[in-house]
């Protein structure tokens, strides 16, 4: 396995979905440097964690939206990948230019999306 693992920051409020994403990232050679399942934790970590290569953000966290977290990460220059059951139409206009993976996503879809994000932010 490569010694320079890419680093991801993950926000996802469903345990099962997060477990699945953890495994996918692990198999792709990524490590999760921080993860949060609730908005308050996500905001705190977004501001304090070491800079990841990408942030994968579930849009709906138990009824509240993840965008305050996205704002913090964007201001720190972190590339963002949204994950949502709503698809791109579910994003407000100011975030619609960001890459999106639609739930439920496959490992291949996550891999492709991460590749695109990294290509945009070399």
């Amino acid at each position: 396995m490569s010694s320079i693992r890419r680093k991801a920051f993950v926000v996802e409020d469903e345990s099962l979905v997060l477990i699945n994403l953890e495994d996918m990232l692990d198999q792709m050679g990524w490590s999760i440097i921080a993860q949060a399942m609730r908005l308050a934790d996500a905001e705190r970590l977004a501001a304090s964690t070491e800079l990841p290569d990408v942030a994968i953000l579930d849009v709906n966290l138990g009824g509240v939206q993840v965008f305050p977290v996205a704002q913090i990460l964007a201001s720190r220059g972190v590339p963002i990948l949204f994950a949502t059951g709503y698809g791109r139409e579910g994003l407000p206009p100011e975030w619609q230019s960001y890459p999106v993976i639609a739930k439920p996503y496959t490992q291949a879809e996550v891999e492709r999306a991460l590749g695109e994000v990294l290509a945009l932010h070399p």
């Binding site: 099962l16 979905v17 699945n20 495994d23 579910g90 439920p104």
Partner: peptide, 24 residues
């Protein structure tokens, strides 16, 4: 409809994870 779609997709993602983990 949006809310239903969200819940269905989330549930499918949950079932997907259950299936993957169980098989693994």
């Amino acid at each position: 409809i949006d809310e239903l779609n969200h819940r269905v997709k989330n549930t499918l993602a949950t079932v997907q994870s259950i299936a993957t983990q169980t098989l693994r």
